[in-house]
Amino acid sequence: MDQKTRILIVEDDMIIAANISLQLSNLGYEVTGLVTRGEEAILHAKANKPDIILLDINLKGDLDGITAASKIQETHNIPIIYLTANSDEPTFARAKATHPYAFISKPFSNLDLQRTIALVAQQIMNTNNDTIGDEQQHIQVMDDRIFVRHNGKMMKLLLDDISYIEADRNYSNLITSNGSYLISTTLKVLENELKNHKFIRVHRSYMVNISKLDVVGEHHLEIKRKVIPLSKTFKEHLLKHLHTI
C-alpha cells in the first residue's frame, strides 16, 4: 500500500480493540486511534478524518454506535463497518439506515476481519477514482451562486452565504450560516472554479470567503469564532487581496 488506509477502532472492550489494532497494523493499515465511547468517536473522526471507522454498535455511555455514526455523517462522509453481537431486527434496521459499508458479526475470526476491511478499502478506492473523474458534474458556478448536488438534487447556494470551505479528502464541506454541505468535489477544483470570486485558499485544507473574515492573525484566521489555520505558503497571497478590497 503506497498510502495506508487509516482506520479508527471504536470498541468498548479494550482487549478486543487491542487485538483488532494489532492485526490491522500487521496487515499494513494505519490505526488512528482506539476509543471506547460514541462521544469520543465523534471528536476523533472530526479531528483525524479516518478513511474507515470500525464501530461497535453496543457501546457504553449515552450514545450507541448507530447514533454516533449518524452524528459523524452529518459532517463527514466516512465509511462505517459495524461490529455487532446483536442481530435483532430493530437494531439492524436502525444500523441499515446509516448506510454502512459492511457488518461483522461477533465473534469473528481474523480472516473475517481481514477480508471485510480489504473489500471496503477497495470500494473506497474505486469510489474515489470515480469521484475524481466525475467531479466537474457536481458543481455549477454562476455570477453570484453555486449549484451543488446535495441529497440527489441540485441545490442553489449564494456565494455570499458561504463562510469557508474545508477539504475532506476528495470531498469538500461548504460551511454556511444555515448549515454545511458536503459535495464530491476536491478543494483544488473549487479553487479553480471560484478564483474570480471572494474565495482565497489559506491552507491546504481550507478556502475562506474574505468578506466573512473577523480576525487575521499571524498563523490563523477567525470566522464567527471558528479558528482556521493560515499557512505561510498562502499568507502573502491573502494579504494582497485584503489590501485591494
Rank of each mutant, 00 (worst) to 15 (best):
E193D: 09
E193I: 01
Q122G: 00
D160H: 11
E166A: 09
N128W: 06
N173C: 15
F199R: 05
N151M: 09
T186A: 05
Q136T: 10
Q136F: 07
R149P: 02
M207S: 11
S177D: 13
V208W: 11
D134V: 00
N196Y: 04
R204F: 01
H197V: 03
H203K: 04
E135V: 01
R149Y: 10
I139P: 03
H150P: 00
N151E: 12
L159C: 03
M154P: 00
H138W: 05
S163T: 02
M142T: 12
V202I: 12
Q136D: 08
R145T: 05
D143A: 12
Y206M: 13
M142Y: 10
S184N: 11
D143Q: 10
S180Y: 01
I139S: 03
I132Y: 09
V189L: 13
V208P: 12
D161A: 08
N170H: 09
D161N: 12
N151Q: 13
D130E: 11
K156G: 00
K195V: 06
I175V: 15
L158W: 03
I124V: 07
K188H: 07
D160S: 15
I200D: 08
L157I: 10
S205C: 11
L159F: 02
E193T: 04
L159Q: 05
F199G: 03
L174P: 08
K195Q: 14
E135Y: 02
R169L: 07
H138P: 00
G152T: 04
I124F: 03
S163Q: 12
R201C: 04
A121W: 03
N178V: 01
G133K: 14
N178H: 13
L182Q: 08
E191H: 11
L190F: 11
Y206E: 12
L157A: 08
D143P: 00
S184Q: 13
D160V: 12
N128P: 01
M125T: 14
Y171F: 13
I132K: 10
Q137C: 04
G179S: 04
S180P: 01
N173T: 11
A121V: 03
V141T: 08
R145G: 00
Y206L: 05
Q136C: 02
Y164E: 03
A167Y: 06
S172K: 06
E191S: 13
V202W: 10
L174Y: 07
M125F: 06
Q136E: 11
Y181W: 09
S180N: 14
G152P: 04
H197W: 02
H203D: 09
M155D: 13
H138E: 11
V120P: 01
M207Q: 14
N151I: 03
R204V: 05
K198S: 15
N178K: 14
Q137P: 00
T176L: 08
Q137N: 14
M125E: 13
